[in-house]
Design a protein around this nucleic acid. Structure first.
Length: 253
DNA sequence: TATCCTTTGAAGCAA
DNA sequence: TTGCTTCAAAGGATA
């Protein structure tokens, strides 16, 4: 089992959570099913399987990993298919050509990597404020649905010739609900491993660290445009949530 | 250029 | 403990 930040296992927390109103049944038994025949390897084990060598607790290591194709035709029972794979490939070799930043870490600028700077300017660059500014942002690990979206987005775009993400995500949301428990469980399991590895890589990280980094103005807008004002427990608004999704054939769903 | 939209799930926080 | 809020991805649309 995977201990969470609260000291409870993920399954325990999940079992304690109230039943989602969108009708997706709790999957905890399936997690047990998954963990038993396919015990989650410790991150160190995963690294060994992938032939990479890097101390997991090293703070500055987290920046490198090797991106894989991301195909999930056959979902592996390892974490690595696209977010944390060969995590340490090239990590011990700064500037290693095969090394690209871990997707969970982005420069605080959000745009590009830091440029090399002159030694004579190093003293200035070492100022605390600058360090703070250059501090990379560690992103949240992706949840099961996000993993599903990442895999299926291209497929939906190809099928529907849509490009607008909002519309794509609506379709993906319906498809997600149409998945069997077993199919969903694959993604829940992947997400669980993602969180586990994220915890190992960034022990002190908290989701709170990223709070306020996205400026949102939608809340006021929504509170004005929706009489109820507040989103329901699922992040949607009563008016929208109350309207049943229109039936779409499976080719679209 | 920054934010919105849209989805679900995880996590944080206030009451 | 409950319920609400924020963020994670994505890219076209909008202010």
């Amino acid at each position: 089992m995977v201990p969470t930040g609260n000291g409870l296992t993920w399954t325990e927390r999940h079992n304690k959570a109230s039943q989602p109103s969108h009708g997706v049944p709790q999957l905890s038994p399936l997690y047990d099913h998954f963990s038993s025949p396919h015990p989650t390897p410790a991150p160190a084990d995963i690294s060994q399987k992938q032939g990479v060598h890097r101390p997991l607790q090293t703070p500055d290591l987290s920046g490198f990993y090797s991106l894989t194709s991301g195909s999930m035709g056959q979902l592996p029972h390892t974490v690595s298919w696209f977010t944390h794979p060969p995590l340490m490939l090239g990590s011990g070799v700064p500037g290693h050509p095969a090394a690209i930043p871990h997707p969970a870490i982005v420069p605080s600028s959000g745009k590009q990597e830091l440029q090399p700077y002159d030694r004579s300017l190093k003293a200035q660059a070492d100022s605390k404020a600058e360090k703070e500014a250059k501090k990379p942002t560690i992103k949240k690990p992706l949840n099961a649905f996000m993993l599903y979206m990442k895999e299926m987005r291209a497929k939906v775009i190809a099928e529907c010739t849509l490009k607008e993400s909002a519309a794509i995500n609506q379709i993906l949301g319906r498809r997600w609900h149409a998945l069997s428990r077993e199919e969903q469980a694959k993604y829940y399991e992947l997400a669980r491993k993602e969180r586990q590895l994220h915890m190992q890589l960034y022990p002190g990280w908290s989701a709170r660290d990223n709070y306020g980094k996205k400026k949102r103005r939608s809340r006021e807008k929504h509170q004005e445009s929706n009489s109820g004002g507040k989103r329901n427990a699922f992040g949607t608004y009563p008016e929208k949530a109350a309207a049943p999704a229109p039936f779409l054939p499976m080719t679209v769903l």
